[in-house]
Amino acid sequence: MHIVVCIKQVPDSAQIRVHPVTNTIMRQGVPAIVNPYDLFSLEEALRLKDIHGGRVTVITMGPPQAEAALRKCISFGADEAILVTDRAFAGADTLATSYALATAIAQIAKDQAVDMVFCGKQTIDGDTAQVGPGIAKRMDMQLLTYVSQVDSLDITSRTVQVQRRAEGGVQVLTTRLPCLVTMLEGTNEMRFATMDNMFRAARYQLKVWDRVAAGIEDVSKIGLKGSPTVVSKVFAPQAKTQRAEIIDSESGEPRDLALTLISKLFTQHPAMSEAVVKQSA
């Protein structure tokens, strides 16, 4: 079994702040982490390796600093890590990113055929959920998104059975390898890094591939050039023309504030009174 897991280093979005006056992003000091959704996929890959043996290779496309995220994955138990980094990738949208990653994974497969690829459901910074499906399409692999459970994997017949989250229920699907899986969050819990793996991660010589090493010849398919979408503007959301009507009362007591609010709510929105009373009944 050879499993490739795609990860991304992301800023911990919970800690991003916007400057209150200039409305610009304050990125300084925001810690970089492995995209949390990717960890559910990495854990599933490691679990499958525990059962069936084989190798887990982690890959990321990103700036040189993304090395730290790969080392983190090694400490959890991944065998190999590859950093695909090149200035030529700058400005890539999801179409260009999936091209670069799919080509790099094909390059990995030259050493040892790839049976499964895992991606996170989406990232916490881009939130698009588009790169996984893009890689699957480009590599002509079956796509299994939003998987809540890998029921079984049979290496001899090269089949896998999974549970996939649909809108109103769960689909039980079976497909053939190779396939690409994106795991749903909360489906497993990342193991602790063992002491041995932590030492290994610290010493590990990761592979760094530039565009050429990754097997990418056509520069028109990567970076800004290979991206059909363009960001035309970034802006702060418009405040509504009218700010909230601030409820005040003479006493300022919670009780008076609450009564004032409810009377305003029901007189200014007559339908509301009916809706609320009906709902509460």
Binding site: G91, T94, V131, V231
Partner: peptide, 11 residues
């Protein structure tokens, strides 16, 4: 893995 968010604004 969108890079839209970090893409330089291409006018």
């Amino acid at each position: 893995m969108s890079a839209e968010t970090k893409a330089p604004v291409k006018k």
